[in-house]
Amino acid sequence: MTLLAFDGVTKHYGEELVLDAVSFELDRSEVEVIIGPSGSGKSTLLRCVNRLAEVDNGTIRFDGEPIGDTDADELRRQVGMVFQDFNLFAHRTALGNVTLGLRRVRGFSKEEARERARRELEQVGLGAQLDSYPAELSGGQKQRVGIARALAMDPELLLFDEPTSALDPELIGEVLAVMRELADDGMTMLCVTHELGFARSVADRLTFLEAGAIVERGDPERLFTDPRSDRTAEYLSRLTGEY
């Protein structure tokens, strides 16, 4: 069952080509990890999925429908996003960050929203931080709030834009653990990350993106052990430190 399909997607920022005829399909309950050097178009690719960026050419289908045909707000309700810089609502508590979408997008009552938000935050291990403001949380806690906020919308697909890149190394584990749990529960996930351990053990697909184009895509284990492209081999060995 294909949930997300890119077909010849091209995107420019001004003169610069950031996505170059990208095509791939992602099935329901699959986890895909995208890696690639900075500036290779990974973030832009994610942003095209929930229409934070619009494509120039080609089609993106979500659940069979071209995303250009659906209302952007409705699409975004079904496609959650987790940000590198967390982007937690700075004026709201952890609980308030999760209730906002429940109240204003999904139309929950105040009580329903609080109850649901409490459950989501407990799920990511933040039952004791409900009333903390973002500035009072550690990076790992912030990112888990970010995940709970996205999950509360009951998304079909979750986009992760370098969710651990802004974290202290010792805090990365708690975020990856939550992501691993989500994958085990059957959430469809499209993740831009440099966490190769996560890619290798959790992802169903690994894509190497460079200069806006897919260089190689396939089973993570195969890309690590038997890459077809020299560029993939070079990049992966550099990331893993095996020069």
Binding site: G80, L88, G101, V105
Partner: peptide, 12 residues
């Protein structure tokens, strides 16, 4: 990023 995050959960 604040408005981006708001839009990303489906707020207009």
């Amino acid at each position: 990023g604040q408005l981006t995050a708001a839009r990303a959960i489906g707020l207009g």
